[in-house]
Write a protein that binds this DNA or RNA. Structure first.
Lengths: 241, 241, 241, 241
DNA sequence: AATGAATGAGCGTTCATTCAT
DNA sequence: GATGAATGAACGCTCATTCAT
């Protein structure tokens, strides 16, 4: 029993090591530069050993995606229960999204690559399902907060609009903002000095636009978000300069 | 010299042809399937000839991206001068962005690939510069409209906020939305039936949030955008259902 | 010792099981698909254990071949004592050869592989010897029948001709026929509707040619062969249509 | 024109060289030992170049098979027109088969491997067709001689027997005999001193058995075969000792 | 004795790039 | 200037075999 436990533990450690390596390599050399040869070379293990953990390259990438999604899911779950006030919980989720990108930039990079690469071929349907379900659960957490807001009369949705529609807007804004931030190194010299702050404001304005009470003119959600990051995620430094 | 002019013209034609072919191949077989061999095989020219136009494969892809950016730049320019009213011009740019993705989906796909691939070592500084300048000019066009709005008192920017900050929000929203739309095939079943409409509303709410007059509660910008797409870009069918 | 006997028995059982598995895998996935990994996976034993039985893959295949040869040898022995009449015994051996291919097609396939593959460097001298001895004993059984025929004056061999020469002819005919049958799927459409019947006739004509009494014009050896297959080998259905 | 002719010639030469090498390697290391790596290494060309001539490994093997079959076809055609007497022409074909194996032992080895290997997967259907057609044409040449014999009343076929049935017997005998000869090195010590002579006799007895006139008791077909090999195929030494 | 993780050479194949013609 | 044969490193992947446990 002890032996099998140790072996199992070693196996998991090795698997984690492979994924760590693959993750950082994925960012450095991109999807097309990531190769089993390189992964094996960079580890102290042989190619065959890598293949004993993952049946093919795509599975490695999908595993990375799953890790990223699971990580975010967990953070969203924490944030979604943080406050009794619906709009504050929403702000909390925004804070979680921030925290996620900053704390696990590689996870975010993996997500970006996954969402744009054209490599949905060989990966096992099982894992793909898992990925979709992570996506959905994330979406549901956030739309759940919207529903709470509606239920608590903090918010009234326009006709023909689902909570998911609202979330789609926030999601797009968030994902797009971090993608632009990550892929552009001339933001500052182009007049965008503090993109994170702008993202926060944009999110607030969007929620204000939906009439979600209390509006950002009444509550300083910037401060709320810093508070979430400090209290829920243990940041030492507030993020707003 | 007339001769050299003809030669030059032929050269440009051939270059355009290579790019057209590469672009459609990129759609059909993905980045993975794009190969110099295949490009050459599908043209009446040989591999060597193609190498006389583009020193390596990456340059082709970058050239493709530049075409896309130039295309968008042109469309933005058209949209940015379409109306005397600043907020309508802004809506026009939104319509142009829509039109761009729908009319040239490949261009958008190329942009995404470019933004995630890591292949900048091999590409020429010249082309890279061009790309950056396209990006910047696009940004400037849009921020120009913002400045006009400010100048015309349709809009007052908060303290510490540049026109570019505002544009960054819109840009993120747009880019993010189209990335999510492109990469997710379960949007509808997840409650997001009409993502384009949601994107439009999100944009409007954002601009409303900045106080840009006249607000979307006063003017039906949906209709304005359809109008732009019809009048400026010649769409026969309005996009709102 | 009782213990060692049990162990020995278990060992032999396991060995037989490995070979059974390997043989059926050989049928299903061909020589190419036969792998130690797969054998181990399909058994309740590990790769290492299999290596304790067979020092390498080739030995397994050779052991398979030996099983096949031994099987045939046994059947030939049965057939060679079946009748007091030499020519009928000869027909019996023909029937045994038929029976062998039909009842154990895998054994025949293994034989063919063995005879064409080049893998003798790795295999043990012992097993190779065994294989040669099987071959020889088979030959001797048949040539023994020829000698009986000569001794009983049913047959007179030409000058410079050994009983083995005669057997060589039959052997060639038989092995060649089944190889052609196995490897060609267009026999029928090429006018060879019943190759087995033709093989039988060819054998009979050959023996007639040597003057082996009674000739096939006097005795219906087709019927004799069906009888052998029914009585000696327990076939329920006669083979001639 | 001249250039292209030279290039074409060089191409064909290179192709022939690859095939020559592959052929001799196939015999030495067997089907499973033959690898593109080895072929490339043994030539002064790189792997990529080999692939510019043959799209995959199987095609190389099939090309070898085609060469062998075509070679034999040609020899059979020569032999089939050699004499006005049907049975002598038949003997001529036997001589051609002998000549083929002796003059091109590698071609024969290829045939043997092809007929037993389980690798009919990837090869282009086109080439496979060609192979089948070679087989058929060979068969037709020989069965044509049988038909001639029937037409000339040298031979009467039994009921339910096609000329192809007769040929099937000869074919089996021949292919089987040479396979046994090739794969067994203990023939002589097992009492089979002159297998070729035995094969010849077996063939004659078979044809005698069908009643093909004149019988081998009337004509010395051994001498006829030596004559064919000398006159048609230019052998300097008769083959019968 | 049994295990299965680890190895690493090998496989068939692709493809960007070069360069003699 | 155009060609395409040649290259050779790289790719994803397999598998017989070894050996520490």
């Amino acid at each position: 029993m002890i032996t099998s436990t140790r072996k199992e533990r070693e196996r998991l450690e090795r698997e984690a090591k492979i994924l760590d390596l693959a993750r950082s390599m994925l960012r450095q050399v991109g999807y097309h530069g990531l190769s089993m040869d390189r992964i094996a070379a960079e580890m102290e293990y042989s190619k065959g050993t890598i293949y004993q953990h993952f049946p093919n390259k795509e599975e490695i990438i999908l595993a990375l995606a799953n890790q990223a999604l699971e990580q975010r899911l967990g953070m969203f779950q924490q944030a979604a229960t943080w406050s009794p006030k619906s709009r504050e919980r929403m702000a909390g989720i925004g804070a979680a999204a921030e925290e996620f990108v900053e704390r696990y930039p590689l996870h975010f990079a993996v997500e970006q690559i996954i969402r744009s690469a054209s490599m949905w071929e060989k990966t096992s349907e099982e894992r793909r399902k898992f990925m979709r379900s992570c996506d959905q659960r994330c979406l549901q957490i956030v739309s759940g907060v919207v529903r709470d807001g509606v239920a608590q009369d903090d918010l009234a949705l326009p006709a023909n609009t689902t909570p998911e529609d609202l979330v789609f807007g926030l999601w797009s804004l968030n994902f797009g903002a971090y993608t632009v931030i990550t892929s552009s190194d001339t933001l500052e010299e182009n007049g965008i000095a503090n993109p994170i702050a702008t993202l926060r404001r944009s999110q607030n304005l969007l929620l204000d636009g939906y009439g979600w009470q209390p509006l950002s003119s009444e509550v300083d959600y910037d401060q709320v978000m810093d508070q979430v990051r400090a209290e829920v995620f243990g940041d030492e430094q507030p993020n707003t300069p």
